[in-house]
């Protein structure tokens, strides 16, 4: 069965880059969000298995989304894909329960190995 996946990034290019970096064998049904608030609206209304989440976004940033997911016990995996690559940021993101922290522009091999590690492909 296809995995419901949400790609959240304010950049159209970045959303396409994530999509293109995923293996063909990845059976998913995609939705997109352009900021954190849009992402939360989707996450509250539907069951989403996996979120690809950008950090620096207007309206509500990725940290805000992770905090809400934690506070509301929303059940989903989150892989953060970020241009902000400071070790301190990675630490915060992992403490908030993200599965992984990937630097932009997204590296295909890294993404595949994480998906494999968690049995998603």
């Amino acid at each position: 069965m296809a995995l419901p996946v949400l790609i959240c990034d304010d950049s159209l290019l970045a959303r396409k880059q994530v999509r293109k970096s995923l293996p063909e064998s990845f059976d998913a049904e995609f939705q997109t969000a352009g900021n954190g608030l849009e992402a939360l609206a989707i996450l509250r209304a539907q069951e989403i298995g996996l979120v690809f989440l950008d950090l620096t976004m207007p309206e509500l940033d990725g940290i805000g989304v992770l905090e809400a997911i934690k506070a509301e016990s929303i059940d989903c995996f989150v892989i953060v894909i970020s241009a902000d690559i400071q070790p301190e940021m990675k630490k915060r993101v992992m403490e908030l329960g993200a599965l992984a922290f990937i630097h932009k522009p997204v590296n295909e091999d890294k993404l595949h190995s994480i998906l494999k590690q968690y049995g998603l492909i």
Binding site: S11, T56, A83, I85, Q86, K104, P105
Partner: peptide, 13 residues
């Protein structure tokens, strides 16, 4: 904008 964001991220780090 996205290319600049990524470059900015590297510079900030």
């Amino acid at each position: 904008q996205e290319i600049i964001n990524v470059a900015m991220g590297l510079a900030s780090d």
